[in-house]
Design a protein around this nucleic acid. Structure first.
Length: 576
RNA sequence: GUGCCUGUAGCUCAGCUGGAUAGAGCAACGGACUUCUAAUCCGUAGGUCGGGGGUUCGAAUCCCUUCAGGCACGCCA
């Protein structure tokens, strides 16, 4: 597997292979698993690759230092490996930087917006199910997590050559629709529903629950109405469509602002007619047992509670719909991976339903994965509005944009379009905040960490990009400007280019861990290096050779940072 | 009660398959704009990696135990 990566990426991976090959030629250690021992040191002053000899000490009955020295004596340097050093039991390899820099430039400039991408996923399908808001309920902050993470993962898989199917598994089915119908007929206001559909639907939904406490028969009515909906009764179906259309209209507004689209909106309702098959399949395999008037799959043998398949009133439930959806997807998309971007609180549900798929005899159950994420908490109390702890997302986005505009107006930049720029930067700041931490950790949201003038934020990365572009503009840079890497002598210059060479590996790691934060952190990291570079070194200088080399470095950076942000679903601005 | 997750600097977080002095960013303090946008940069200070055992040449990382917090445990999704 690794071999094929080398092919595609070149860059640092080629050098790794060279080092491994050299070590393998050493007779005394040829049987050792060199590949797993070889590592990349933390500090570049300790080389580009390091081979710790501690484990060999007991085998050879010699000190690690002595072993390292013996190996070092045998290995010869060459065009790729410039220097080999022995330090405290480590064998440190230094690669030929100017060759590496040359190669990196070539790759970036020839591939441009496809730099870092590869083809390892070619002809493979990945389904990413994400966002999945509930009809008639507010699009809350958890959905935003799912939306932003899912979209980024979709981008990341696409960059690896996979064919990605983005599915919005709408929560458009279930007993809550029975409740809504009862509520709508009793307390609904059509005018308000047209103005602010979600708000009004939520109001009557809450009202229903309040009333139902006094009058339990409402619950029964609701269950009955949902049953009618499932049976396809016309009146109920019409109401359902009405609620769905109105809600989607409002969700679309957010998707448009986030620049996110889907390949499928097949939600729970879509699978409602596919469930009898699921139930008969389960019955055929003898998995379904009666329990308290309901039907379940017993999972005692796997230390899990049973998985409910049919409710006691005969109606469907989410597990059944998820099973139907998975079967539908494998038949229609022949997926290689089927990812569910859903909060970690639902981990058990996914474990159960994947297990049921396995018990049904589907080997592809192991290709289904739950990509969980943590909760969003608020440090800034002001963000959490009253009315039932529901946060209006539009307001969050608007506030971010407004604060961004404020900051922009204070700065000395020559922004031409404040409205457009603040929108991109403000939205980007929110997206970045959601993606920079590892998924499963809870997010503690604060405006300071999101929009701070300084720090690891979206605006910081976008600013770095716009500075780079500004320099290129001032210098009238064009792509034919020649470069000679020998004029990039500064440590920070070499460091920056070396980091740019690792972008492809970052994408691989992000996909391997289903972790967009890998890309977000990388973007911050190269931005920091870039900022150090341009603060310490002028780009536009007298010496044409130095200037051209630096301009190309700035250009290379701008390409990589733009690609990285694109993977996160964040746009760049030329001036900010 | 059972299971899962989290616990790293005052705050928010990195830390890959165990490896060389535990890294950033905020906030604090001190510096850098006649020079490519100072939403930037440079420097200082700040840590018993929750506690305790164990495995190992070597542990934030693996195992056990304990404490603290969170979440989930059939007719909601």
């Amino acid at each position: 597997m690794r071999g094929s990566f080398l092919y595609i990426f070149g860059g640092i991976m080629d050098y790794r292979k060279t080092v491994i090959d050299k070590l393998k030629e050493v007779d005394s250690i040829k049987d050792i698993d060199i590949e797993s021992i070889l590592e990349i040191p933390k500090d570049s002053s300790m080389g580009d690759f390091s081979f710790p000899c501690f484990r060999l000490a007991s085998v050879f009955r010699k000190s690690p230092d002595a072993i390292a020295n013996e190996i070092a004596a045998v290995i010869k340097t060459d065009l790729n490996i410039k220097k080999i050093e022995v330090v405290k039991g480590y064998l440190n390899f230094f690669i030929n930087k100017s060759k590496m820099m040359e190669e990196t430039f070539e790759k970036i400039f020839s591939l441009k917006e496809r730099y870092g991408f590869s083809y390892i996923g070619e002809k493979k399908n990945v389904i990413v199910e994400f966002s999945s808001p509930n009809i008639a309920k507010p699009f809350h902050i958890g959905h935003l997590c799912s939306t932003v993470i899912g979209n980024s993962l979709a981008n990341i898989y696409e960059a690896l050559g996979y064919h990605v199917i983005k599915v919005n598994h709408l929560g458009d089915w279930g007993t809550q629709f029975g409740k809504l119908m009862v509520a709508y007929e009793n307390w609904g206001d059509d005018e308000k529903l047209k103005e602010e559909p979600i708000k009004e639907l939520l109001r009557i939904y809450v009202k229903f629950h309040d009333e139902a406490e006094e009058n339990p028969s409402l619950e029964e009515q609701a269950r009955y109405r949902f049953k009618l909906l499932e049976d396809g009764c016309e009146k109920e179906t019409q109401l359902w469509e009405y609620f769905r259309t109105m809600s989607l209209k409002e969700f679309e507004k957010i998707y448009r602002r986030l620049n996110i689209s889907f390949d499928s909106y097949a939600g729970e309702q879509f699978y409602s007619d596919k469930m009898p098959e699921v139930i008969s399949l389960l019955e055929e395999k003898g998995l379904l047992v009666d329990s308290q008037n309901a039907k379940v799959v017993n999972l005692d043998d796997y230390d899990m509670p049973p998985c409910l398949i049919v409710k006691s009133d005969g109606a469907s439930i989410y597990a059944t719909r998820d099973i139907a959806a998975a079967i539908y997807r494998v038949r229609n998309y022949h997926f290689d991976k089927n990812l569910y971007i859903v909060g970690t609180p639902q981990a058990l549900h996914f474990k159960q339903f994947f297990k049921v798929l396995e018990l049904m005899g589907y080997p592809w159950s192991s290709d289904c994965r739950h990509i969980g994420f943590g909760l969003v908490k608020f440090k800034d109390k002001k963000l959490a509005t009253r009315k039932g702890d529901v946060i209006n997302l539009e307001e969050v986005l608007d506030e971010s944009v407004a604060r961004t505009l404020d900051i922009m107006k204070q700065s000395a930049s020559e922004v031409d379009d404040y409205t457009k720029t603040s929108e991109i930067v403000g939205i980007g700041a929110i997206i970045f905040t959601f993606l920079k931490k590892t998924r499963e950790r809870d997010l503690i949201f604060s405006w300071e960490d999101t929009l701070n003038f300084e720090g690891e934020t979206g605006p910081y990365v976008q600013y770095s990009y716009s500075r780079a572009k500004s320099i290129l503009r001032k210098a009238n840079f064009n792509e034919n400007t020649p470069y000679d890497c020998d004029y990039l002598k500064e440590e920070v210059e070499i460091d920056l280019l070396s980091k740019l060479s690792k972008f492809g590996e970052m994408i691989l790691e992000a996909a391997k861990r289903d972790e967009p934060s890998v890309i977000a952190r990388y973007a911050v990291n190269i931005s920091q290096t870039f900022n150090s570079f341009y603060n310490a070194n002028r780009v536009i200088v007298e010496d044409k050779n130095v200037m051209n080399a630096r301009l190309n470095l700035v250009y290379a950076f701008s390409i990589v940072i733009k690609n990285a942000l694109a993977l996160l679903g964040i746009e760049v601005v030329e001036i900010m």
